[in-house]
Amino acid sequence: MSIEMSLLFGAIGTVLGVLGAIITMKKDSKNQGASEASITTKVDYIARGVDDIRLDQRAQASKIESMNEKLIRVDESSKQAHKRIDKLEGISHES
Results as ranks from 00 to 15, higher is better:
residue 1 M to N: 06
residue 2 S to C: 05
residue 3 I to L: 14
residue 3 I to E: 15
residue 3 I to K: 14
residue 7 L to Q: 14
residue 8 L to M: 14
residue 9 F to S: 14
residue 10 G to F: 07
residue 10 G to W: 07
residue 10 G to K: 14
residue 11 A to P: 02
residue 11 A to G: 08
residue 13 G to A: 02
residue 13 G to P: 08
residue 15 V to T: 15
residue 16 L to F: 03
residue 16 L to Y: 02
residue 23 I to F: 03
residue 24 T to C: 04
residue 24 T to G: 07
residue 25 M to I: 13
residue 30 K to F: 03
residue 31 N to C: 00
residue 32 Q to P: 00
residue 34 A to M: 11
residue 34 A to V: 05
residue 35 S to I: 09
residue 36 E to I: 10
residue 37 A to Q: 04
residue 39 I to H: 05
residue 39 I to L: 10
residue 40 T to H: 00
residue 40 T to L: 00
residue 41 T to G: 15
residue 46 I to G: 00
residue 47 A to Y: 00
residue 48 R to P: 01
residue 49 G to S: 10
residue 49 G to C: 02
residue 49 G to N: 08
residue 50 V to A: 05
residue 51 D to P: 01
residue 52 D to M: 03
residue 53 I to E: 15
residue 53 I to D: 00
residue 53 I to Q: 00
residue 54 R to T: 07
residue 54 R to Q: 11
residue 56 D to Q: 10
residue 57 Q to V: 08
residue 57 Q to I: 12
residue 57 Q to S: 12
residue 57 Q to T: 14
residue 57 Q to W: 02
residue 58 R to V: 15
residue 61 A to Q: 06
residue 63 K to R: 08
residue 64 I to M: 06
residue 65 E to D: 08
residue 70 K to Y: 05
residue 71 L to M: 07
residue 72 I to Y: 08
residue 73 R to P: 01
residue 74 V to W: 01
residue 76 E to N: 11
residue 78 S to E: 09
residue 78 S to H: 00
residue 78 S to I: 10
residue 79 K to V: 03
residue 81 A to R: 13
residue 82 H to D: 12
residue 83 K to T: 02
residue 83 K to D: 04
residue 88 L to H: 04
residue 89 E to W: 02
residue 89 E to R: 11
residue 90 G to C: 01
residue 90 G to Q: 13
residue 91 I to R: 15
residue 91 I to P: 01
residue 92 S to E: 15
residue 93 H to I: 12
residue 93 H to W: 06
residue 94 E to H: 15
